[in-house]
């Protein structure tokens, strides 16, 4: 039972990071119908920028909470700038192009971001200075560090904030209108270009925070770290029903828990035939199963896509 509780905690914390990144995918998909392949790499840039900021600030003797706020701020500024310019340069001209075109540019942008990061930061793993002393909390037999608790709570707060924003604010309403029908939203006086740009702002900023969380949580950063994270987050978004913000949250948490429990128990369940070596497959299996059985995802309202 202790072990099960521990696996649940592992999964929820991991899942809250997936969920944050998934938000970026799901918002862009909802509005543009585009898989923003580069979103995982924007998260990576956020992670590496905040890592560098922490290194510099911690060396200068700035107190830890200030360091974190500044590092997160720096990462957000860089990521938002990147996200908006990518939309402007690589996606907007292709908005009415054949549908393979923006997907291929997205892959190109993803490669460009990765190798630009490799040029700037090098290809080795970069160590994150330990600035937060981990204190341990025990809940129902599960070990939980203060960092894990903070990540989880902060992620939940951001997600709740976003849901409220979409529901209640003027911009949120404009976003939902654009999502339903861009042409009609435009006729109703919504500046769709602005709304789309704002979607990228929001997604990139949340991605930057997720990046900061990842380097804090694992203690290292790397130019390739965005790829797998992005893929898992996308899976989470599909699992919850892509385009649906609440679905991304649910999908992220669920995927984290599934991965954790599966790699923890699969060996015992299959009598040792399958082991934790198949961990990365679970995400893809979930993806294929969801797409095949319920393409609209767990919380998708519509029957998804034709043919």
């Amino acid at each position: 039972m202790e072990i099960f509780a521990q696996q649940l905690v592992n999964g929820l914390v991991l899942g809250s990071i997936y969920a944050l990144v998934a938000l970026g995918y799901t918002m862009v998909y909802g509005i543009l119908g585009l898989i923003n392949f580069a979103h995982g790499d924007i998260t990576m840039i956020g992670a590496l920028v905040s890592l560098t900021a922490v290194q510099l600030l911690a060396a200068a003797g700035v107190p830890a909470p200030v360091v974190l706020v500044l590092a997160g701020g720096a990462a957000m500024v860089v990521c938002v700038a990147l996200g908006v310019s990518i939309e402007r340069v690589a996606y907007r001209p292709l908005r009415h192009a054949p549908r393979l075109a923006p997907l291929i540019t997205a892959i190109g942008i993803s490669i460009l971001l990765q190798y630009s990061a490799a040029l700037i930061w090098g290809k080795q793993y970069i160590a994150m200075p330990e600035i937060v002393e981990p204190t341990r909390i025990v809940i129902a037999g599960a070990q939980l560090t203060s960092l894990q608790a903070t990540i989880f709570l902060l992620a939940c707060a951001i997600m709740a904030g976003l849901l409220w924003f979409l529901k209640a604010s003027r911009m949120g309403r404009a976003m939902r209108a654009t999502e339903q029908n861009p042409a009609v939203a435009g006729l109703m006086g919504v500046n769709t270009n602005k709304v789309i740009a704002f979607t990228f702002v929001l997604g990139s900023a949340i991605g930057a925070i997720a990046g900061l969380m990842v380097v804090l949580y694992y203690g290292l950063g790397h130019y390739f770290m965005g790829f797998m994270l992005g893929l898992k987050a996308f899976t989470a978004a599909v699992l919850g029903g892509i385009g649906n913000v609440a679905g991304a949250v649910l999908g992220g948490l669920l995927l984290g828990v599934i991965e954790s429990l599966a790699s923890g128990y699969i060996g015992d369940l299959t009598g040792g035939v399958l082991g934790s070596n198949y961990r990365d497959i679970f995400a893809f299996l979930v993806l294929v199963l969801v797409l095949v059985l319920k393409p609209s995802g767990l919380m998708g309202q519509h029957s998804g896509d034709r043919a």
Binding site: I3, N10, S260, S276, R279
Partner: peptide, 8 residues
């Protein structure tokens, strides 16, 4: 992330 296998 190795928490799942380490927990086991």
């Amino acid at each position: 992330d190795f928490r799942a296998i380490l927990t086991k």
